[in-house]
Measured scan of single mutants.
Amino acid sequence: MSGNGNAAATAEENSPKMRVIRVGTRKSQLARIQTDSVVATLKASYPGLQFEIIAMSTTGDKILDTALSKIGEKSLFTKELEHALEKNEVDLVVHSLKDLPTVLPPGFTIGAICKRENPHDAVVFHPKFVGKTLETLPEKSVVGTSSLRRAAQLQRKFPHLEFRSIRGNLNTRLRKLDEQQEFSAIILATAGLQRMGWHNRVGQILHPEECMYAVGQGALGVEVRAKDQDILDLVGVLHDPETLLRCIAERAFLRHLEGGCSVPVAVHTAMKDGQLYLTGGVWSLDGSDSIQETMQATIHVPAQHEDGPEDDPQLVGITARNIPRGPQLAAQNLGISLANLLLSKGAKNILDVARQLNDAH
C-alpha cells in the first residue's frame, strides 16, 4: 500500500501541473516587456503551470559599433537563445518575429505568432524639431536608422535628408537623439515604442507609400524545439490566425527572394473581405531603383483552434497545428507568387547589386 502511495506522490510531482516552463529572452527592456506579455497570456491559459524567465545577451546586443547589415552573420539576435533551447536550458524563446530568419536551424520551429501590433515605422524627432515631419525637416538634416530597408525607401522619398546608421537598443538610440546634436530624427518601429509606453515620442507614423515595413514587423514569434510536442501544444494558444497568415505570406515572399538583413526588402499586408493583399518591394541601397507589386488571394481566416493538420510540417519556419492547413498554404503560395513576379521584373539584379555594395563598404 505504502509503495503505491509513493508512486502516486511521484506521479503528482512529475505531472504537468508541477512543471516549471523556462522562457528565454534577450536582456533589453523591450525584450523583457514583450516576454512578460507572452508569459502573462500563458499564465492565464495555464494557471497550474509556473513560468521562469531567463534573460541573456546576444551577438546583436554586444556589437554596437557596426551596422547590422555589415556584421555579416545571420541570427544576430537569436543564436545564443537557440543555443540555450538546444541544450534544454529553456523550453521556449520569445523573439520579435522580424529577427527570426525565414529558414531556422534544424530542430527549431516557430510554435506561435502572437497578435500583431502596429507594424509601421515611426519617426521620433529631436526636441528642437518636435512638430515637424520628415518632409518639413531642414535641408541636409541627419536621420538615424539601423535599417537598409528604411534608408533606401526614405532616401527616395525625401532626397533633402541624409540617413546615417544608429545602433543600440531603444533606450540607447533615444538617448543619442536627445543628448547629442548629430541626429534631427530617428526611425523606429511603432510597436516597440508603444510597448515601452513611449507613445508621446511618436512624431509621425510612416504610411506604406512612404515606407513599407519589415517582414514580420510588429509581431512576436515564440520559438521552440520542433519535436517538443508538449510545448508546441502549450504555445499553440498564442497563435493569432490573421497575423499568422499575413506573416506566412510575408516570410514566403522574403524567403523566395532570398532577402535578408543586408538587402532592402519591404512588405505591406492587409486582410479585407476574405482577401489577403500582399505588397512587396525591393530597392537599391540608395533607393534610386525599385520594383513594387501587389497581389491578392482569397483566404478564409479560420477561428482559433479549428482542428489543424496533425502532421505539422513547417511552413517558412512556422508550425501551427491548430490552424487549418489550406489557408496557410494559400498564404505561402501568395508570397511565392509575388516573389516570382518581382524576380521576373529584375528584382534579383537589384538585390545582387545591393548585396555587393553593402559587402564592399
Rank of each mutant, 00 (worst) to 15 (best):
G60A: 05
F108L: 13
P324H: 14
K74E: 00
H83N: 13
Q332D: 07
I71K: 12
S28N: 01
L341W: 08
N340W: 15
L148W: 06
C114Y: 04
Q314R: 03
L188S: 05
Q181D: 08
E258W: 04
V263R: 05
S57P: 07
T319N: 05
K79M: 09
V93K: 00
D230M: 15
S75K: 15
K87D: 13
R173C: 00
Y46S: 08
L170W: 01
G274T: 00
E306H: 12
S147P: 00
E82K: 07
L30R: 01
M212P: 05
F253K: 00
R19I: 12
G221F: 03
E258I: 12
M56L: 14
H95A: 08
Q229T: 12
N349Y: 06
D61A: 00
R167C: 04
L174S: 06
V93S: 05
N349Q: 14
I323D: 07
D36E: 11
G111A: 06
A249I: 02
G197P: 03
E209I: 01
V215P: 07
A331S: 05
A270T: 06
L254R: 03
G111N: 02
L134G: 04
K87Y: 15
V23S: 02
T298E: 10
L137R: 05
I187G: 06
A151Q: 15
A249H: 00
L85D: 03
A219K: 00
L97Q: 01
K70I: 13
Q296V: 12
K87W: 12
T109G: 00
F158N: 13
H120Q: 09
G308F: 03
E117A: 07
I21G: 00
R225D: 06
T190F: 00
C261W: 07
V222W: 01
A226S: 08
A214Y: 02
L148Y: 02
A303I: 15
D289T: 15
V263F: 09
G221T: 06
G259Y: 05
L315F: 15
T294L: 09
D352S: 10
E242V: 14
T109P: 00
A266C: 02
R325H: 13
Y277K: 04
L343V: 14
N169V: 12
H83Y: 14
P313F: 02
F129T: 11
L148I: 13
T269P: 01
S57M: 01
I299C: 15
G216M: 02
G287L: 06
Q29W: 11
E209V: 03
S165K: 05
I53F: 13
C247F: 05
E117L: 10
R195K: 03
E250F: 01
K132H: 10
S262G: 15
P105S: 10
A347W: 00
L238S: 04
A84R: 05
G60Y: 02
G48I: 08
R246Y: 05
V38D: 03
N340M: 15
A252H: 02
H160D: 12
T279Q: 08
D230N: 11
E162R: 11
R149E: 02
P101H: 13
L188G: 09
W198K: 11
Q275V: 13
R173D: 01
R321W: 02
E162M: 10
R251T: 06
L351Q: 15
A270H: 11
F51K: 05
S344I: 14
Q180M: 10
K79L: 09
L85T: 06
T35P: 00
I318G: 07
A40D: 11
E89L: 11
S344H: 15
D61S: 00
